[in-house]
Nucleic acid binder design. Structure first.
Lengths: 137, 137
DNA sequence: GCCAAAGTTAGGTAAACGACCCAACTTAAG
DNA sequence: CTTAAGTTGGGTCGTTTACCTAACTTTGGC
Protein backbone atom coordinates (compact mmCIF):
# COMPACT_ATOMS: atom_id res chain seq x y z
CA UNK A 1 0.00 0.00 0.00
CA UNK A 2 2.87 2.30 -0.77
CA UNK A 3 3.63 4.06 2.51
CA UNK A 4 6.30 6.71 2.36
CA UNK A 5 9.72 6.16 3.83
CA UNK A 6 8.98 9.20 5.94
CA UNK A 7 6.19 7.39 7.76
CA UNK A 8 8.44 4.43 8.43
CA UNK A 9 11.11 6.71 9.79
CA UNK A 10 8.62 8.48 12.02
CA UNK A 11 7.27 5.23 13.43
CA UNK A 12 10.71 3.82 14.09
CA UNK A 13 11.81 6.95 15.88
CA UNK A 14 8.59 7.09 17.89
CA UNK A 15 9.05 3.48 18.89
CA UNK A 16 12.50 4.44 20.04
CA UNK A 17 11.11 7.40 21.94
CA UNK A 18 8.73 4.98 23.60
CA UNK A 19 11.71 3.34 25.25
CA UNK A 20 12.49 6.58 27.03
CA UNK A 21 9.04 6.73 28.61
CA UNK A 22 9.19 6.38 32.36
CA UNK A 23 12.73 7.68 32.48
CA UNK A 24 13.36 11.37 32.88
CA UNK A 25 15.81 11.40 30.02
CA UNK A 26 15.18 13.22 26.79
CA UNK A 27 16.29 11.74 23.50
CA UNK A 28 18.54 13.73 21.16
CA UNK A 29 18.23 13.78 17.44
CA UNK A 30 21.59 12.15 16.90
CA UNK A 31 20.87 9.21 19.21
CA UNK A 32 17.53 8.66 17.55
CA UNK A 33 19.02 8.94 14.10
CA UNK A 34 21.70 6.43 14.91
CA UNK A 35 19.53 3.92 16.76
CA UNK A 36 16.90 3.80 14.05
CA UNK A 37 19.12 4.41 11.05
CA UNK A 38 17.36 7.53 9.91
CA UNK A 39 19.30 10.32 8.16
CA UNK A 40 19.57 12.99 10.83
CA UNK A 41 19.05 15.88 8.46
CA UNK A 42 15.76 14.40 7.42
CA UNK A 43 14.86 13.45 10.95
CA UNK A 44 15.00 17.08 12.01
CA UNK A 45 12.12 17.76 9.67
CA UNK A 46 10.14 14.75 10.80
CA UNK A 47 10.52 15.55 14.49
CA UNK A 48 9.36 19.06 13.80
CA UNK A 49 6.17 17.87 12.19
CA UNK A 50 5.57 15.42 14.99
CA UNK A 51 5.89 18.23 17.51
CA UNK A 52 3.57 20.53 15.57
CA UNK A 53 1.17 17.64 15.37
CA UNK A 54 1.19 17.19 19.12
CA UNK A 55 2.71 13.71 19.04
CA UNK A 56 5.91 14.63 20.83
CA UNK A 57 7.22 17.44 23.01
CA UNK A 58 10.64 19.00 22.96
CA UNK A 59 12.93 21.07 25.06
CA UNK A 60 15.51 23.43 23.71
CA UNK A 61 18.96 24.31 24.85
CA UNK A 62 21.52 22.20 26.59
CA UNK A 63 19.93 19.10 28.09
CA UNK A 64 17.24 19.50 25.47
CA UNK A 65 15.64 16.70 23.55
CA UNK A 66 12.43 14.94 22.65
CA UNK A 67 9.83 12.86 24.44
CA UNK A 68 6.43 11.42 23.63
CA UNK A 69 3.61 13.79 24.46
CA UNK A 70 1.43 10.91 25.65
CA UNK A 71 1.76 7.30 26.68
CA UNK A 72 2.66 4.96 23.82
CA UNK A 73 -0.59 3.05 24.07
CA UNK A 74 -2.73 6.09 23.35
CA UNK A 75 -0.83 7.16 20.24
CA UNK A 76 -2.15 5.22 17.25
CA UNK A 77 -0.38 4.67 13.98
CA UNK A 78 -3.27 6.53 12.43
CA UNK A 79 -2.43 9.60 14.51
CA UNK A 80 1.14 9.49 13.30
CA UNK A 81 0.28 8.94 9.66
CA UNK A 82 -2.18 11.78 9.65
CA UNK A 83 0.49 14.15 10.93
CA UNK A 84 3.39 12.91 8.81
CA UNK A 85 1.53 12.15 5.62
CA UNK A 86 -1.59 14.30 5.47
CA UNK A 87 -3.47 13.53 2.32
CA UNK A 88 -3.15 9.83 3.06
CA UNK A 89 -6.56 9.92 4.68
CA UNK A 90 -7.96 13.22 3.53
CA UNK A 91 -7.88 12.43 -0.19
CA UNK A 92 -11.27 11.66 -1.64
CA UNK A 93 -11.49 9.72 -4.88
CA UNK A 94 -13.08 11.56 -7.77
CA UNK A 95 -16.69 10.89 -8.69
CA UNK A 96 -16.29 11.86 -12.31
CA UNK A 97 -17.50 9.69 -15.14
CA UNK A 98 -20.45 7.36 -15.26
CA UNK A 99 -18.88 4.93 -12.80
CA UNK A 100 -17.19 7.55 -10.66
CA UNK A 101 -19.60 7.31 -7.77
CA UNK A 102 -19.46 3.53 -7.54
CA UNK A 103 -15.70 3.44 -7.81
CA UNK A 104 -15.34 6.16 -5.22
CA UNK A 105 -17.57 4.26 -2.85
CA UNK A 106 -15.58 1.06 -3.25
CA UNK A 107 -12.26 2.79 -2.80
CA UNK A 108 -13.53 4.56 0.27
CA UNK A 109 -14.49 1.17 1.67
CA UNK A 110 -10.98 -0.10 1.15
CA UNK A 111 -9.56 3.07 2.61
CA UNK A 112 -11.69 2.62 5.70
CA UNK A 113 -10.34 -0.86 6.27
CA UNK A 114 -6.86 0.57 6.10
CA UNK A 115 -7.78 3.42 8.40
CA UNK A 116 -9.45 1.26 11.00
CA UNK A 117 -6.49 -1.07 11.16
CA UNK A 118 -4.18 1.92 11.62
CA UNK A 119 -6.37 3.22 14.42
CA UNK A 120 -6.24 -0.14 16.17
CA UNK A 121 -2.46 -0.22 16.43
CA UNK A 122 -0.49 1.98 18.82
CA UNK A 123 3.12 2.79 19.44
CA UNK A 124 3.11 0.17 22.16
CA UNK A 125 2.67 -2.44 19.45
CA UNK A 126 5.93 -1.21 17.98
CA UNK A 127 7.89 -1.60 21.20
CA UNK A 128 9.56 -4.74 22.52
CA UNK A 129 7.16 -6.64 24.73
CA UNK A 130 9.73 -7.57 27.37
CA UNK A 131 10.82 -3.99 27.94
CA UNK A 132 8.07 -2.73 30.22
CA UNK A 133 8.01 0.68 31.79
CA UNK A 134 11.29 1.51 33.44
CA UNK A 135 9.86 3.08 36.59
CA UNK A 136 11.63 0.54 38.73
CA UNK A 137 15.10 1.08 37.38
CA UNK B 1 -4.52 5.71 1.29
CA UNK B 2 -3.25 7.59 -1.69
CA UNK B 3 -4.30 5.58 -4.72
CA UNK B 4 -3.10 6.86 -8.05
CA UNK B 5 -5.42 8.50 -10.51
CA UNK B 6 -4.39 5.77 -12.90
CA UNK B 7 -6.03 3.13 -10.72
CA UNK B 8 -9.23 5.15 -10.51
CA UNK B 9 -9.26 5.55 -14.26
CA UNK B 10 -8.72 1.85 -14.76
CA UNK B 11 -11.54 0.92 -12.42
CA UNK B 12 -13.97 3.36 -13.96
CA UNK B 13 -13.23 2.11 -17.44
CA UNK B 14 -13.49 -1.51 -16.35
CA UNK B 15 -16.82 -0.80 -14.71
CA UNK B 16 -17.90 0.66 -18.01
CA UNK B 17 -16.63 -2.39 -19.86
CA UNK B 18 -18.71 -4.46 -17.50
CA UNK B 19 -21.80 -2.91 -18.99
CA UNK B 20 -20.90 -4.40 -22.35
CA UNK B 21 -20.82 -7.92 -20.93
CA UNK B 22 -23.51 -10.10 -22.37
CA UNK B 23 -23.70 -8.03 -25.51
CA UNK B 24 -21.53 -8.89 -28.46
CA UNK B 25 -20.38 -5.33 -28.84
CA UNK B 26 -16.82 -4.23 -28.26
CA UNK B 27 -16.06 -0.91 -26.60
CA UNK B 28 -13.83 1.63 -28.33
CA UNK B 29 -11.30 3.78 -26.61
CA UNK B 30 -13.09 6.97 -27.42
CA UNK B 31 -16.45 5.84 -26.06
CA UNK B 32 -14.78 4.67 -22.88
CA UNK B 33 -12.80 7.85 -22.53
CA UNK B 34 -15.87 9.98 -22.95
CA UNK B 35 -18.19 7.96 -20.74
CA UNK B 36 -15.75 7.81 -17.86
CA UNK B 37 -14.04 11.14 -18.39
CA UNK B 38 -10.58 9.75 -18.81
CA UNK B 39 -8.04 11.44 -21.11
CA UNK B 40 -7.98 9.16 -24.14
CA UNK B 41 -4.27 9.47 -24.71
CA UNK B 42 -3.67 8.21 -21.22
CA UNK B 43 -6.34 5.57 -21.50
CA UNK B 44 -4.51 3.96 -24.40
CA UNK B 45 -1.67 3.19 -22.05
CA UNK B 46 -3.94 1.91 -19.29
CA UNK B 47 -5.87 -0.39 -21.60
CA UNK B 48 -2.61 -1.81 -22.85
CA UNK B 49 -1.49 -2.72 -19.37
CA UNK B 50 -4.86 -4.22 -18.60
CA UNK B 51 -4.60 -6.40 -21.67
CA UNK B 52 -1.04 -7.48 -20.88
CA UNK B 53 -2.25 -8.24 -17.38
CA UNK B 54 -4.99 -10.48 -18.70
CA UNK B 55 -7.84 -8.36 -17.38
CA UNK B 56 -9.28 -7.47 -20.76
CA UNK B 57 -9.07 -8.70 -24.32
CA UNK B 58 -8.92 -6.65 -27.51
CA UNK B 59 -9.46 -6.91 -31.19
CA UNK B 60 -7.72 -4.84 -33.79
CA UNK B 61 -8.83 -3.34 -37.00
CA UNK B 62 -12.20 -2.05 -38.00
CA UNK B 63 -14.90 -3.32 -35.65
CA UNK B 64 -12.13 -3.68 -33.08
CA UNK B 65 -12.40 -2.79 -29.43
CA UNK B 66 -12.11 -4.04 -25.88
CA UNK B 67 -13.99 -6.44 -23.62
CA UNK B 68 -13.50 -7.95 -20.19
CA UNK B 69 -11.52 -11.18 -20.30
CA UNK B 70 -13.70 -12.69 -17.56
CA UNK B 71 -17.01 -12.09 -15.86
CA UNK B 72 -17.08 -8.95 -13.72
CA UNK B 73 -17.65 -10.89 -10.52
CA UNK B 74 -14.42 -12.82 -10.81
CA UNK B 75 -12.21 -9.79 -11.40
CA UNK B 76 -11.29 -8.28 -8.05
CA UNK B 77 -10.07 -4.77 -7.42
CA UNK B 78 -6.93 -6.38 -6.12
CA UNK B 79 -6.33 -7.97 -9.52
CA UNK B 80 -6.66 -4.62 -11.20
CA UNK B 81 -4.47 -2.76 -8.76
CA UNK B 82 -1.72 -5.33 -9.03
CA UNK B 83 -1.65 -4.91 -12.79
CA UNK B 84 -1.97 -1.14 -12.93
CA UNK B 85 0.07 -0.21 -9.90
CA UNK B 86 2.57 -2.98 -9.24
CA UNK B 87 4.59 -2.08 -6.19
CA UNK B 88 1.41 -1.27 -4.34
CA UNK B 89 1.41 -4.74 -2.87
CA UNK B 90 4.91 -5.95 -3.57
CA UNK B 91 6.70 -3.31 -1.49
CA UNK B 92 8.03 -4.58 1.80
CA UNK B 93 8.75 -2.10 4.57
CA UNK B 94 12.38 -1.89 5.65
CA UNK B 95 13.53 -3.66 8.81
CA UNK B 96 16.42 -1.32 9.46
CA UNK B 97 17.01 0.29 12.82
CA UNK B 98 16.27 -1.07 16.27
CA UNK B 99 12.52 -0.86 15.75
CA UNK B 100 12.54 -1.78 12.09
CA UNK B 101 11.24 -5.29 12.56
CA UNK B 102 8.33 -4.28 14.75
CA UNK B 103 7.36 -1.39 12.52
CA UNK B 104 7.56 -3.59 9.43
CA UNK B 105 5.34 -6.15 11.08
CA UNK B 106 2.72 -3.58 12.02
CA UNK B 107 2.72 -1.99 8.59
CA UNK B 108 2.40 -5.37 6.95
CA UNK B 109 -0.64 -5.99 9.13
CA UNK B 110 -2.23 -2.79 7.92
CA UNK B 111 -1.30 -3.61 4.37
CA UNK B 112 -2.97 -6.99 4.67
CA UNK B 113 -6.23 -5.41 5.79
CA UNK B 114 -6.07 -3.22 2.72
CA UNK B 115 -5.25 -6.15 0.48
CA UNK B 116 -7.98 -8.40 1.81
CA UNK B 117 -10.59 -5.72 1.35
CA UNK B 118 -9.42 -5.20 -2.23
CA UNK B 119 -9.66 -8.93 -2.86
CA UNK B 120 -13.19 -8.98 -1.54
CA UNK B 121 -14.52 -6.42 -3.98
CA UNK B 122 -15.07 -7.15 -7.66
CA UNK B 123 -15.95 -5.22 -10.77
CA UNK B 124 -19.54 -6.21 -10.20
CA UNK B 125 -19.52 -4.05 -7.09
CA UNK B 126 -18.66 -1.11 -9.33
CA UNK B 127 -21.58 -1.66 -11.67
CA UNK B 128 -25.11 -0.38 -11.28
CA UNK B 129 -27.20 -2.95 -9.42
CA UNK B 130 -30.30 -2.51 -11.57
CA UNK B 131 -28.44 -3.10 -14.80
CA UNK B 132 -28.15 -6.85 -14.83
CA UNK B 133 -26.80 -8.87 -17.73
CA UNK B 134 -28.29 -7.75 -21.01
CA UNK B 135 -28.90 -11.20 -22.46
CA UNK B 136 -32.61 -10.54 -22.73
CA UNK B 137 -32.36 -7.34 -24.68
C1' DG C 1 -6.62 -4.06 -53.55
C1' DC C 2 -7.12 0.00 -51.35
C1' DC C 3 -8.77 2.82 -47.69
C1' DA C 4 -10.35 4.03 -43.42
C1' DA C 5 -11.17 2.78 -38.72
C1' DA C 6 -9.67 0.82 -35.23
C1' DG C 7 -5.86 -0.91 -31.76
C1' DT C 8 -0.31 -1.02 -30.77
C1' DT C 9 4.00 0.75 -29.58
C1' DA C 10 7.66 3.85 -28.48
C1' DG C 11 8.97 7.89 -26.97
C1' DG C 12 8.89 12.44 -24.83
C1' DT C 13 7.73 16.07 -21.31
C1' DA C 14 6.31 19.26 -17.71
C1' DA C 15 5.06 19.55 -13.09
C1' DA C 16 4.88 17.61 -8.71
C1' DC C 17 6.78 14.89 -5.13
C1' DG C 18 10.19 12.42 -2.15
C1' DA C 19 14.20 12.27 0.28
C1' DC C 20 17.28 14.41 1.45
C1' DC C 21 21.34 18.51 2.66
C1' DC C 22 22.79 23.00 4.54
C1' DA C 23 23.16 27.16 7.07
C1' DA C 24 21.61 30.64 9.96
C1' DC C 25 18.99 31.30 14.14
C1' DT C 26 17.23 30.67 18.95
C1' DT C 27 17.15 28.81 23.44
C1' DA C 28 18.92 27.32 27.76
C1' DA C 29 22.42 25.20 31.07
C1' DG C 30 26.65 25.67 33.29
C1' DC D 1 29.25 33.86 27.53
C1' DT D 2 30.14 29.78 25.65
C1' DT D 3 28.41 25.72 23.98
C1' DA D 4 25.12 22.08 23.18
C1' DA D 5 21.10 21.40 21.93
C1' DG D 6 16.52 22.29 19.12
C1' DT D 7 14.23 25.61 15.21
C1' DT D 8 13.49 27.43 10.79
C1' DG D 9 13.72 28.21 6.03
C1' DG D 10 15.61 27.24 2.15
C1' DG D 11 17.74 24.47 -1.76
C1' DT D 12 18.65 20.30 -4.64
C1' DC D 13 18.40 16.25 -7.31
C1' DG D 14 16.42 12.22 -8.91
C1' DT D 15 11.99 9.79 -9.61
C1' DT D 16 7.28 9.43 -10.53
C1' DT D 17 2.86 10.89 -12.36
C1' DA D 18 -0.11 12.16 -15.79
C1' DC D 19 -0.23 13.11 -19.56
C1' DC D 20 0.76 14.05 -25.24
C1' DT D 21 2.58 12.79 -29.97
C1' DA D 22 3.38 10.24 -33.76
C1' DA D 23 4.48 6.36 -36.38
C1' DC D 24 2.98 1.56 -37.05
C1' DT D 25 -0.12 -2.52 -37.62
C1' DT D 26 -4.25 -4.88 -38.17
C1' DT D 27 -8.83 -5.63 -40.03
C1' DG D 28 -13.31 -4.96 -42.48
C1' DG D 29 -15.71 -3.21 -46.31
C1' DC D 30 -16.26 -1.13 -50.89
Amino acid sequence: MKLSLKVEYALRVLAQLGRYQGTSKLAHIDSLAEAEEVPSNYLVQILNELRNGGIITSRRGKQGGYALAKEPDVISLYDVMRVIDPGLFTSEPSRAGQSGAHVAQALTLIGSAFEEKAKGLTLRDLMPKDAGPMYYI
